[in-house]
């Protein structure tokens, strides 16, 4: 406890109390640390997850890393890295990257893995290259799950980024770590509340983003199983302005298409062909 108090005592330097250490600056610092860590982790884990999902190779990595990396104590790791690399932003980003890798890796892998094998087979059979299969079929269809991994990573990192203040780097954790030893609990609580609010806002943003990334054709498939059989009901649901239909106005069917129902279309062979 004494070493902690010592580090915090250093943090109690009046320089850190000035106006430019105010909430907006701390918030931006917190977001900056979070996005830097998630970005670095995404470059590593999403590319690896996409590769594993597409090729089916190295899939043991997903199971082992997600399990093992999650078991690591973040604060202990931070101290270790700080002793090794020296105090600075480096160790913070490093531990947060390690924290963010498992959900990102699992999300990217599971996203690609979730795509129907028949769809991929058809894409290959019609002459898509492996890269085109990945970018035009697997990523668009797996995106909701990939974004789900991102959502989970952001949530964990934004909450844990508080420990950046431990080293001491910026971020909202500074209010907690700076004021706790002074037994000034007001700023400590304020810091905790700010971190919680930020996490909740980001959670909401990413939940919405995740919903938006469901391709329209897939949403129809999931939303109304009846649509598969081409019944009129599915069309009515669509035409009546469901969120799916309104969100993608450019793809939504216009009035003439709404009128043509599947039964007449199925028999349209009798129509003169141009």
């Amino acid at each position: 406890m004494n070493s902690l108090l010592g580090a915090l005592a250093w943090l109690g330097d009046p320089v850190n109390w000035t106006g430019e250490r105010g909430i907006p600056v701390r918030l931006l610092e917190h977001l900056g640390i979070t996005s830097a860590a998630v970005l670095v982790a995404a470059v590593i884990a999403v590319s690896l997850g996409l590769y594993i999902g597409h090729t089916g190779r190295l899939s043991f990595l997903v199971v082992s890393t997600t399990g093992a990396l999650r078991a690591l104590p973040t604060l202990g790791l931070l101290v270790l890295f700080a002793l090794w690399l020296g105090v600075g932003i480096g160790p913070v980003i490093l531990v947060l990257v390690i924290l963010a890798i498992p959900p990102l890796l699992a999300g990217a892998y599971a996203g690609v893995e979730s795509v129907d094998r028949g769809t991929i087979d058809a894409a290959r059979a019609m002459g898509m290259t492996e890269w085109q299969i990945l970018t035009r079929v697997e990523i668009p269809l797996g995106l909701p799950i990939i974004v789900g991994g991102l959502r989970s990573a952001v949530l964990q990192v934004v909450a844990t980024a508080t420990i950046a203040a431990y080293l001491p780097i910026g971020g909202l954790g500074r209010y907690i770590f700076d004021y706790l030893p002074l037994r000034r609990f007001e700023p400590v609580f304020a810091g905790a509340i700010l971190v919680t609010l930020l996490a909740l806002v980001l959670e909401g943003v990413f939940a919405a983003l995740q919903r938006l990334t469901v391709p329209k054709g897939v949403r129809i498939l999931q939303g109304s199983p009846a649509a598969r059989g081409g019944s009129g009901r599915a069309r009515v649901e669509l035409a009546s302005g469901s969120p799916a239909a309104t969100a993608h106005a450019q793809g939504a069917s216009g009035p003439p298409q709404r009128r043509s129902d599947s039964v007449s279309a199925e028999n349209s062979t009798s129509l003169p062909t141009q």
């Binding site: 054709g217 216009g254 062909t273």
Partner: peptide
């Protein structure tokens, strides 16, 4: 669009998604 004519599909279906079609379509 010409190919839709060839296979006997109404051109009005062009902007539909596969999930909105019957198995035969």
């Amino acid at each position: 669009l010409e190919l839709l004519d060839t296979v006997g599909l109404d051109r009005g279906l062009a902007k539909r998604y596969p999930a909105q079609l019957s198995g035969g379509q």
